[in-house]
Amino acid sequence: MKRILTAAAAVLALTGGLALTTPAVAADCPSGHFCTWQEADFGGQRANWSGDDGWWEGWIADTDSSWANHGISGPGVKDHVRVYESAWQGGAMTICLAPGQEVGYNGAANDRGDSHTWAMGC
C-alpha cells in the first residue's frame, strides 16, 4: 500500500528545520533482523530477513514504506543494512541503517526498495 502524504506532513517535510513528530509505536522487528513494512510507521505487512535478499518478493518490492535495522553488533559482524532500488543491489542505494536505526517516515523516496544486503559499513 502506498503511503499518502498528508498536507500537514508535507508542510513539515518542506520546512525541513522543524522537528518531525516520530511515532511512539514500537517497531516490532525480531532481534538480529532487518525489517521493512508496506505502510509508514511500521504498519501493514512486514518482511524481515536475517540475511541478504537480492530480489525482494513482489508483494514487498517497491511497496516498502518504513524500515528498521535490529541487527546485533559484534566484532567482524555485518550489522549495517544497505537498501537498493533495484534487484541484486543495483541502482541507487536509497538508505543505509546501523543497528537500532529506524525510518518510519519517508518524504520523497517511498516505495522504492528491491533488494538489500548486510555490510560492515555503508
Binding site: 516520530t22 532481534s31 535490529h70 538508505i95 537500532g100 525510518v103 517516515y105 519517508n106
Partner: peptide
C-alpha cells in the same frame, strides 16, 4: 536492546528519509 517509547533521536536526510 533498542529502547522503547518516543524516539528521541531524529534526523531527516536530503534523500527524504527521517532516521530515528
Amino acid at each position: 536492546l533498542f529502547g522503547t517509547g518516543p524516539r528521541e533521536l531524529s534526523l531527516t536526510l536530503a534523500t527524504g528519509h527521517t532516521v530515528t
